[in-house]
């Protein structure tokens, strides 16, 4: 089969090779689609915040909907202390959402279907949240590894388990997004190529699957962005409000 379903995830260089020492920092198609996503967000937010009417326009309504949605999510999960982190979580949600959505367009590239991208974001969140926790609570933050009401004999084991559980956060956060996006897009591609190879006679079944899957994928694209953002909020909540 000519169309390898994994081919859509191929990263290739666009333009000249950029090297910093031994490190290749070339502009790739992945970078291009990150840029497109960011640009789309900027254009959307620009037109969504331009007018000042009492009755909002269509784009303004959507932008404000997103704003209220994220604000409510943060206050629901992490409380009022998390308010200073609103811009970051808003940016994170919008970026992941747009990367996922733009990946749904034919011939485009899904930035978030790459483990390194999701891992960098997850690691950044993980490190940032840990730093926030230590800044807010000092060494007392370590108490999240020591649950209350545990027998002394079991304490070392529980602590190790808690540490592993804590360290698994960035892994699960990044793998979830990456795996969801990659699996969905691979499936779409596979069914798409079935449509072509089975032709007019037998292609209708995989086509209907493809249509249904596309709808599902759009839902997943939104949900995964939402999950990514809400998990960030939950981790932030753990760091801001120490309780066990």
């Amino acid at each position: 089969m000519a169309a390898n379903p994994m081919h859509q995830f191929q990263v290739y260089r666009l333009g000249p090779e950029i090297k910093l020492g031994n490190v290749d920092l070339s502009f790739t198609n992945a970078s291009l689609f990150m840029f497109i996503s960011a640009l789309t967000i900027c254009i959307f937010l620009y037109f969504g915040s331009k007018q000042k009417g009492i009755i909002p326009g269509r784009l303004q309504l959507i932008a404000e909907l997103f704003y209220n949605f994220i604000a409510k999510m943060i206050s629901d999960t992490a409380g009022s202390k998390a308010k200073p982190y609103f811009p970051f979580i808003f940016t994170l949600f919008m970026f992941v959402l747009l990367c996922n959505m733009i990946g749904m367009l034919p011939y485009s590239f899904t930035v978030t279907s790459h483990i390194i991208v999701t891992l960098v974001m997850a690691l950044f969140i993980f490190i940032a949240v840990t730093i926030v926790g230590f800044i807010k609570h000092g060494l007392k933050y370590l108490s999240i590894f020591v649950p209350k009401g545990v027998p002394v004999v079991l304490l070392p084991l529980i602590t190790i388990i808690e540490i592993i559980s804590y360290l698994s956060r960035p892994v699960s956060l990044s793998v979830r997004l990456f795996a969801n996006m990659m699996a969905g897009h691979t499936m779409l591609k596979v069914f798409g190529s079935f449509v072509i190879s089975l032709g007019l006679l037998g292609g209708w079944l995989p086509l209907s699957f493809s249509v249904a899957l596309t709808g599902l994928e759009i839902l997943v694209a939104f949900l995964q962005a939402y999950v990514f953002a809400i998990l960030t909020c939950i981790y932030l909540n753990d760091a801001l409000n120490l309780h066990h």
Partner: peptide, 25 residues
């Protein structure tokens, strides 16, 4: 078969991600 695991452009992707995300933020 998984281009995601090809580390060739990992630094590039991380770099551009951080740059673009920072600007967007």
């Amino acid at each position: 078969g998984m281009p995601q695991l090809d580390p060739k452009y990992w630094f590039s992707q991380s770099f551009w991600l951080i740059l673009i995300f920072l600007l967007l933020y």
